[in-house]
Amino acid sequence: MDLKGNVVLVTGASRGIGAAIARAFAAEGACVIINYLKNEARARDVVEEIREHGGEAILYQADVRDEAQVGQMVQSAIDQYGQIDCLVNNALSHYTFNPKTRKTAWGISWEDYQSQLDGSLRGSYIATQAVLPFMKEKGRGRIINMVTNLIDLPIVPYHDYTTAKAALWGFTKNLARDLGHFGITVNAVAPGLTYPTDSSRETQEDVREMIVKLTPLKRLAQPDDIAGVVLFLASDWGRFVTGQCIRVDGGLV
């Protein structure tokens, strides 16, 4: 897969799936902008690891919920590389995935929903608007939004998180319709429970085992499994796919 010379912005790339996606892009020759919010040390580790392997990456701190910060990040990427070929909307507002302590339908507040909508949907909206002029000018571009297979099967009902991701999936399909004319594809990738990541650490063994039992491929997803599909959508092989959601969960849903 040749992504040499492609410029890819991955939001929330300091750890977990975001970091795996960033590393995978770099390994295929892309220049990666590693965006992070708080965890500078981890983000710096990702950049250094990429550079050690001969890849190219830069670090950029920005809150995706802040238009000005995202605007500056994108402008800085343009100043450095002249273009952005691919945006991966991976960041979300902080969330703890714990089946035991999750909020129930009768215990959750609107603020919880708002917080997740701000991170997943509004963050993706802001980053998309920021890169759009450059992709339109090039007549091509790839936008990949990270959602979840919980939309199809809320095996653990994380109301606020999953609802916000479902909104992001709606955003994806609508965006694909309008942006296709400009040669820009917009797709979603829906991972199943991915282990190990910081987010999934608190998902107990029994839940993990239950999911594995129901999964045709008989294991949980790993971050690299997710990255492979993202790379496919960003690559020339994925050029005629848009408005799609690809589930990467070993066949669970």
Partner: peptide, 12 residues
């Protein structure tokens, strides 16, 4: 300008 970009894509 959008029109120009879209026309370019359509010609492609």
């Amino acid at each position: 300008k959008d029109f120009s970009q879209l026309l370019a894509c359509e010609l492609e």
